[in-house]
Amino acid sequence: MIPSMEKRGQPQNIVSIKNLSFSRHDRKIFDDISLQIPRGKITAIMGPSGTGKTTLLKLIGGQIKADQGEIKVDEQAIGELSLSGLYALRKKMGMLFQSGALLTDLTVYDNVAFPLREHTRLTESMIRTLVLMKLQAVGLRGARDLMPNQLSGGMARRVALARAIALDPTMIMYDEPFTGQDPISMGALLHLIKTLNNTLGLTSIIVSHDVQETAAIADYIFILANGKIVDQGTPPQIADTQSDWVKQFMGGDADGPVRFHYPAPDYADDLLMLGK
């Protein structure tokens, strides 16, 4: 972290969540959780599939509303903002979707130019310079004329990343950035997330269940399960955890507190149909 990037007078936490509860279709996704995301750091949110990690990002971005509790981004309570206030705040947030969410009818160049054309009154030549700078940062300046369907998964995610940083946001949220990537694209993405965070003075939030990769670049980790935060700390602290559940999750063991088998009657009885 570059200390000078942390401006004086700004609160240390860019996102603060207090007593958040959220349920969908009678299923409790978050049950009274509180967490703080420090400015200028890479914070990872991990947990098994279906624990609502993506939902958390959507709550922070104001795309869905919390049932209870308060979410503050940059000292503004998301739930109380008007639509225009929310849109103004979103210009300071970038989000990288799992699928990339590139606009399929536009070229790579036009995709990266899209937020600039929508929100600024820059001339086309300025936009060109900015777009090429962003594409250079992700290493895809040469791919500017390709259509999204001509890109590999890893390239699409890098273009989406270039688009997410087009408006120079203060915070980027990554939704499962490593899922389905080969080792080389994975390495490229890890490197990009780390360098962008340090050179642009961003705050990064990574939601992921790729434990080792994420732990390698994160400054702080929250682990979510069953609607609660089950553990938090720096990567070494998480590695030395006392919780069997967290050990199993971080180590990827097939059996442990989380059973390999879905609850079922006794195997032998079941085969012999004694239960029926």
């Binding site: 959507k58 971005g61 795309q63 849109y87 103004a88 979103r90 210009k91 947030m93 970038g94 989000m95 979707f97 799992q98 699928s99 969410a101 590139l102 606009l103 399929t104 899209f114 937020p115 929508e118 929100h119 989406a160 688009r163 408006l167």
Partner: peptide, 14 residues
């Protein structure tokens, strides 16, 4: 389905 609408919302475009 491909999150393009969601992506636009997050880029502050209605």
């Amino acid at each position: 389905a491909t999150e393009q609408l969601s992506g636009m919302e997050m880029m502050a475009v209605d």
